[in-house]
């Protein structure tokens, strides 16, 4: 299945009515788009384009970093308070998950170039899986509890903030009286906040991590797309543009998290 009939238009699964031809991999017959002189030039072009695109992504996030810095200077106490409620363990776990995924992504590319398609596909799938794990951790253990007013702690040191709350499940869940949520902006409804501007911290937190999470999803989409194409045999040692590019994108998504993690979770 790593090779396909030369007539790539025949629908999958239906035997092509055309007479059997010798099987070639698509990458072997790949020709650059007609306006490029050759494959190498096309690859360089695409890569330059991708880097420019990554630059725009970095600039997009730089706006958020800017907002973060400005509000941190304006309301240091609010930020200190707010960041208490982020558990560095979840953040750290997610960092590790993303780092692993970056590694598997890179190996995926390598295996494609070495024509080890089985390994390549496993690595790509695993990368997507890591993305999924990241999102699950983010949503179920970070967003949802904070939003709806219960806190799920791994770090016992943080418990003292919640003396006013009830607990459940052997102390892992801490409900806050009245179910006030740590939400952004006007939605902020946590009744025991000690700083009047804490909601701004949450605004920055949800905007930054939310936009980052949407990038994770987009990145997974790209990887799914190249995965399908790897299955079709589009990529090989001489043509692997798509894998390389989605790899670059994925690394960027990872890199941005590497900046977000200390800023949000570690600095208090």
């Amino acid at each position: 299945m790593t090779t396909i009939p030369h007539d790539s238009h025949s629908p999958h699964g239906h035997p092509s009515p055309a007479p059997e031809r010798p099987k070639t991999m698509l990458w072997q017959v790949y020709k650059a788009a007609h306006h490029f002189r050759n494959k190498e030039e096309e690859f360089d072009g695409v890569k330059l384009g991708m880097w420019l695109f990554l630059a725009t992504e970095v600039l997009l996030f730089s706006g958020l970093f800017c907002a973060y810095t400005i509000f941190r200077i304006m309301y240091p106490q609010a930020f200190a308070n707010g960041s208490q409620y982020l558990d560095w363990r979840w953040g750290g776990l997610n960092t590790i998950v993303l780092l692993i995924s970056s590694y598997t992504m890179a190996s995926g590319i390598r295996w494609v170039q070495l024509q080890e398609y089985g390994k390549a596909k496993f690595n790509l799938l695993f990368t997507m899986f890591c993305g999924l794990v990241f999102l699950i951790i983010k949503f179920t253990f970070e967003y949802t509890p904070k939003w709806s007013g219960y806190f799920f702690f791994l770090d016992p040191a943080l418990k003292h903030h919640h003396d006013s709350g009830k607990t459940a499940l052997g102390g892992l869940f801490h409900f806050v009286e009245g179910y006030g949520g740590k939400r952004p902006g006007e939605l902020f409804s946590y009744p025991f906040s000690t700083d009047p501007y804490e909601h701004l911290w949450w605004s920055v937190y949800y905007s930054a991590t939310g936009i980052h999470a949407s990038h994770v999803i987009i990145g997974m989409g790209f990887i799914w797309w190249v995965y399908r194409r790897v299955c079709k045999g589009v990529y090989g040692p001489t043509h692997y543009t798509g894998v390389e590019m989605s790899g670059l994108y994925w690394h960027l998504v990872d890199l941005i998290w590497i900046f977000l993690f200390p800023l949000l979770y570690l600095i208090h």
Partner: peptide, 8 residues
Amino acid sequence: ERIFRVGI
């Protein structure tokens, strides 16, 4: 800001 009133 308009939809959630995040306040930035």
